[in-house]
Structures are given as C-alpha cells and as structure tokens.
C-alpha cells in the first residue's frame, strides 16, 4: 500500500527540481548541488521529516512542558511556572525513592546479566553439534515480549507458583517474593536478568567472533594459559562490544516499565516504583503533564550520566 508512494513522489519531484539547475550549471560552479545530491536529499526527506516531527520536536516540546503546569483534561493549555517542577522534584521523597529504586534495579541487573551472558557466549562460541539449537533457545527470552514473560514470572512468583513449589519440596518455607517490600525489587530484577541474557549473549558472541583468530594462535605459541588468553586477548578484543552492551542495557533497564506494570504495579509500598512507572502514573493517572515531563528529563540526565560514566570506566582501562 505505502510501497507505491515514493515512486511517483521520487520521480515526479526530482525531474523538475533536478532538471532546472543542471543546464545553466554547465559553467562549472562548485557550490551548486549535483542532481544526485538533490535526489539524495529527496530520498532522505520523508524519513528526515518524520524523525524531526515525531522524535526531535517532542524532545523540545517535552522540555518546554517541563517548565509548565499542565493538566490535559482542562483544555486551558500549559501555564509557565519556571523551575517550579524541578524544584519540587528535589524535595519530593517519592521521586527520590523512585530514582534510587531505578538505580538499584540497573545495578542489580546489569552486572549479573552481562557476566552470565558472557559465560554463555563463551560456551556457545565453540563448534559442537547442536550449538545452533542452544543459541536459539538462549535467545528466546529476548524475542518474547516483556509483558508476556512478566506474566509467566508472575505465576512463578505467585504463592503457589514454581518457586514456592520447589522450596516446599525441599522443606524450605515458601517466600512472599513480589508481595514483600523487601524482596519485590529483587524478584523483578531476577526476571529481568533472565530476560536480558539472550540479546547480551548474541551481541557478545558477535564480539567474540570478531576477534582475529591469529591473536589466539599467537597467544598459544607464546604458551599463554587459558586464563591469560582470556585476560589479554579475549577481554581487550571484546571491549568495544562490552561497552555497547553495557550502555544499551543501562538505557533499557533505566526505563523499566512493563515488567513493573505487570508484576507489582509499583508496590508493595512503592518498593518497585521505577521512575518510568512514576512518570506514567503522574501523567496519566494524576494528569500532571508538566511535572511528569520534568521527571522524564531528570531520568534522561541520569541515563546519559550513567552511560558516560560506564563508557569512561570501561574504555579508560585500555591504556
């Protein structure tokens, strides 16, 4: 349906536009765009305009909203309130707690999932029959939606679910998992560690396979043991991919939402309310678009800060 749109648009508009400048341009004017460049611009135009309108302008719009008070139900429009929203966030214990919980969530999930994924990548980076099956199976949690896997884990964590079933079989007392403010975030983290394994493993596997073989040959010739080979060949070769994996994980984990929505709804006692969940409730339950926008930008700043910090610490060691 939409396949046919670019063809008339591309050709119909290019010929007049491209045709006009070329005849007088015969006198060699370097400044003038060539026909190919103009068509190139036209090819980029639909996507570029779309990204501008639906990705870039919303960021500016959101930033402006963060300095206003705006209830979308009352159609009065946003009211400019300066830095009020941000000032309120500084003293807001609920927001502070959500930031802390989000940070804890990222720090709990990230190292565990990266380390296990690395182990898995190393294990499936060897030729043996059926390796493809293992790679596919391990990748499965990644392609199934967060909503669905959260529902499966909701059952596993339920009072009579899989975990308690196993515990009682070995004569341990059943746990409350998601229903206890002390353990709920850990339980959500456990699910997310599992969920993030697949993509991390595949990325790290690609990283492992991009390390030149002759480096391993050389290490072997030099008599390096397995640990030394890993430490001085594999890890340095894997570093660019490791940086990418860590940054991507930070960006995704810091925005945790669907898992919280399904598993705990932010409870008990706000113990699993991530910033994204708080933003959602603030905006779409309490209709506070202004302060919710301010929260989103504080989260944005934290994500950027965390990412830069982790890139620095990972890349810095290279020297």
């Amino acid at each position: 349906m939409s396949t046919s749109t670019p063809s008339p648009m591309g050709e119909a508009t290019t010929s007049p536009v491209g045709g006009v400048p070329s005849p007088p341009a015969s006198g060699r004017r370097p400044r003038r765009w060539s026909r190919i460049q103009i068509v190139g611009l036209l090819f980029v135009l639909p996507a570029g305009l779309y990204i501008l309108i639906f990705q870039m302008i919303p960021v500016v719009y959101g930033f402006v909203l963060s300095f206003t008070e705006y209830n979308p139900i009352r159609r009065g429009g946003p009211e400019f309130t300066g830095l009020d929203n941000y000032a309120e966030l500084v003293g807001d214990p609920e927001f502070g707690k959500a930031l802390l919980m989000t940070g804890r969530y990222v720090l709990q999930v990230l190292p565990a999932t990266v380390v296990i994924a690395l182990v898995l990548a190393l294990l499936v980076n060897r030729p043996f029959r059926g390796v493809g099956l293992f790679r596919s199976a391990l990748y499965l949690p990644h392609i199934v939606s967060l909503t669905v896997v959260s529902m499966v884990w909701l059952w596993m964590y339920s009072p009579s679910g899989l975990f308690n079933d196993i515990l009682t079989r070995f004569d341990f007392s059943p746990q409350t998992w998601l229903l206890d403010a002390d353990t709920a975030l850990n339980a959500v983290s456990g699910m997310r560690i599992w969920k993030a394994l697949g993509s991390n493993m595949v990325l790290l596997l690609a990283g492992l396979q991009s390390i030149p073989r002759d480096l391993y040959e050389a290490a072997r010739v030099d008599g390096a043991g397995r640990w030394k080979t890993f430490r001085y060949v594999t890890l340095p070769g894997l570093r660019p991919m490791l940086v990418y994996v860590v940054v991507m994980d930070i960006i995704f984990l810091a925005q945790g939402f669907a898992e919280v929505y399904v598993l705990t709804k932010g409870g008990p006692l706000g113990s699993t309310t991530t910033v994204n969940f708080l933003i959602y409730t603030e905006a779409f339950q309490y209709n506070q678009f202004g302060s919710a926008s301010a929260m989103a930008f504080v989260l944005f700043a934290f994500i950027v800060g965390f990412s830069v910090l982790s890139v620095r610490s990972l890349v810095g060691r290279q020297k």
């Binding site: 959101g62 905006a283 989103a296």
Partner: peptide, 12 residues
C-alpha cells in the same frame, strides 16, 4: 538514545 518517557507525553 532518547528515553521513551521523554517523548511519551509530547507524542500523546
């Protein structure tokens, strides 16, 4: 790299 929550409200 833009978080979803930043553009969520404007897009709405």
């Amino acid at each position: 790299a833009i978080p979803v929550s930043v553009t969520l409200i404007p897009l709405f």
